[in-house]
Every structure is written in C-alpha cells, then in structure tokens.
Design a protein around this nucleic acid. Structure first.
Lengths: 207, 207
DNA sequence: TGTACATCAGTGAACGCGCGTTCACTGATGTAC
DNA sequence: TGTACATCAGTGAACGCGCGTTCACTGATGTAC
C-alpha cells in the first residue's frame, strides 16, 4: 500500500489523481499488454510525473491489481443487473442476449482480463481474487437458472444449476479466446448464443 | 532472422545451441511469464553468453514465436495421432479421453500458450499463426466426428461436424482457463469430458 | 466570507542499475588433401 | 586416418539507454478562527 493512507482521510485531489492514473493505465495496458508497459508510460498517458505514481501505488503490479478489482466489480454488477431484469417472466434467451452484450462488447476489457489471467495463473494469491470474481458471476447465473426451472430443463450430465453455471462460464471463456484472435464480435455473440442453447437445453433443439 | 543462415548450411553445434536456448526459454517463460523474462535470464538458464543468443535470434519475440511454433506443431501431431488411433472402431469417449490427456496434462504448455494468446491478441500477424494452428486442430476433430456419424448424432444447433469441432475447441479453451486458476487437472479432465458429452450428444444423456 | 497556517500531494531532477546490443577475439567444427 | 587451413559459432567485456526509485522542494488543499 502506498503512503498517505495513514489515517482514513483522503483528499479529493488524491481521489482524482488515483482515478486518472487507473484510467490511463487501463488504456495503456489494453493497447500494449501489461508485460510491455512501464510506469513512465502510464504517468505520461495520465499527465503526471512519476512521483505522483509512487505517491499512490507501490508498484505497477499493485496498480494492475487495483485496476482489475475495480473493473471486475463493475462488470459483476452489470451482469447481475442484466440477469435480474425480467422479473418472474423468465425469458432465458433474452437474458443470454443481454449478458452476452455486457461480456463480449468491450475488447479492451477482454485484453486486460486475459493479461490478468496470465498473471493469476502464476500467483496463487492473485488467482484467489480472480476465482472469487468468477464464483460471484457463476452464482448470479446459477440463481437465474434455478429461477428458470420448470420452464426449461437442463441436460442431466451437467448436474444441477451450479454445474450448468460452470458450463456457461466455460463457454464464455472459450468464445472469448476465439474473439481475441479473430476480432469478430458479431460472430462471437451469435456463437455464444448457440453454445449456451446447446448446453442448457435438452438436445439443443428447444425452440 | 538471425545471421548465419546466409546459405542452407547449418552446423550441428548451431542446431544444438538453438535447441538448448529454446528448451531453457520454455522453462523460464513457463515459470515467470513472457513479459517478465529478459534475454539474459534465458541465456543464463541455457548456460550460454548473451552473444550466443544474438547469433541465433534477433529478439526475444522472435525466439518466443519460434518456440510456440515448434511446440504447437508437436501438440498438433499428438492430437492427430490420438484421434486416429482406433481404426473404424469409432469409440468417441475413448478418443475424448486420449485427446484430453494430451491437451490438459502439461501445465507449462498451457501457461506458455496463454502468454502467446495475449501476444497474438494484439498483433494480427501473430494471431494468424495461432488461428492456423487452431484450424488444424479443428480439422482433425471434425474429420474424426465425421467418421463417427451414424454412431452418434450431433445436436442440430451446432450445425455440421465443423460446427461441432468449433464447440469442442471452445470447451477446451474454457476448461483451460479454469484449470490455469485452480490447478486441478483431475477435475478439469472429468469436466471437459462432461462438457463434450453434453455438446456432442443429443440431450447429453447418451450412455 | 476572509485570512493565516499546517499539512498534503504532486514535481522534476538526480542517481544508478539492469540489461539490450555490439564487436573484436578465440576455440570449435568442418573440409580438402 | 591424420594434418593444415578456413570458416563458423559462441565469448565476454564494454557501452549506453531506459527507467525504477528517491527526495528536497513547492504549489494545492483543507482547517481554524
């Protein structure tokens, strides 16, 4: 943790600077990849001297971690929101449509998220954070699927709603990988829809 | 391309050095991640001076690229082999089992492969190579599925064998992501099996 | 609302290290006879 | 199979740049009266 947080007081100026650094860093990370970014580049992009960086963060790793947390939080809320939208109406395809929109729209986020995965894969502490975030998303999905019970039936092999939620996340991850390479967001969206349909319905032939 | 390849002649010494550098680099990349590795570290791990590196490669990027190509080639052959094994017997679950073994066993390869994905996602030229490798895997899978026709039926939503092969790769990518985080290879293998069963069979209830 | 003072937040110059890159040199390898 | 020579491959020292990190300083911000 960087200096200045000795007591609970944080000036507005500090909040603004921190936010500016995080925003600039997000853009720079997305463009070049975490591994190819220097502290200096982030500062330059944000319009601050390097001293400002050290006043707010201890290392680029710490900033990256903070940045991921913030954005992941945001995404998680959006997904929960998109899933909660239709009250007891339970229109699964529409819910899929909305969630897909949130999750596949922002290429920069996909890039940064994958950088973070690579990071987490080599550091169990970091991995724990990412796993928690994923668990949170899965829970939102499983809850939604549980609500849909009786309207659609889940294939037996996947087990309960929780197993199905795992499958949904896996499909999302798989489609993301392909999207990162071919940059065809339209196709990715259609295709994720098909995969989810195949996974979540008996025989994949539900109309 | 590095010096020394002016004509077609390559000495044995050169071949050995290059291989040693690539092997050492693979271990170092897997351990630390491409973004955190210096040329010096690779040379030290391989037991050469930095001059040896520059005699064989122009940059760390070039070495990384060569390394990926070599290993991907190897994997592709192993997968093709695993799929071709049972002649006209067509035991799909057994084939899935064998392929899964090849694809999920080596954590180091998963790590390096993901580093490469991150790299490719930001460079269309590199992406093309990775897409070609994936297309090759898909073709092997699609061929195998086509052979299995009549013994099992594919869900309609996925379209033909080619569509199903896409789905298989997506499932693999999705499971890989989770495996990188939780390091539970046993679970990943079981789970990939379940996902593939759910995807490739009507209703996922085939015995 | 205004002023005086204390503390905070960001500046920018300075330092030094790690490492990318080069290159004259030497031991290794291959070839010709 | 042995020797002499030519070329190649890797050595390791040297150079210098980029950038991480520090710190004395100053303008900004907040507080007390």
């Amino acid at each position: 943790m960087a200096v200045g947080a000795t007591d609970g007081r944080v000036t507005r100026r500090r909040v603004r600077t921190r936010a500016n650094l995080l925003d600039a860093a997000f853009a720079v990370f997305a463009a070049k990849g975490f591994g190819r970014v220097s502290i200096e580049e982030v500062c330059e992009a944000a319009g601050y001297s390097r001293g400002a960086f050290y006043s707010n963060f201890d290392s680029l790793d710490e900033l990256f971690f903070a940045l991921y947390r913030d954005r992941a939080e945001l995404i998680a809320e959006q997904v929960s929101g998109a899933l909660a939208l239709d009250g007891p109406g339970l229109d699964v395809p529409a819910a899929v449509e909305r969630v897909t929109e949130v999750l596949l729209l922002d290429r920069d986020w996909l890039l940064v998220k994958t950088d973070f995965l690579v990071h987490a894969a080599r550091d169990p502490e970091v991995a724990r954070t990412l796993l928690e975030h994923r668990a949170r998303l899965r829970r939102a999905i499983a809850d939604r699927l549980a609500r849909a019970r009786g309207h659609t039936t889940l294939p037996a092999v996947l087990g309960d709603a929780d197993g199905a939620a795992h499958a949904v996340v896996a499909a999302y991850d798989g489609v993301t990988t392909q999207l990162l390479l071919d940059r065809d967001a339209g196709h990715a969206r259609v295709w994720l829809g098909q995969l989810l349909t195949a996974l979540l319905t008996e025989g994949g032939t539900r109309q």
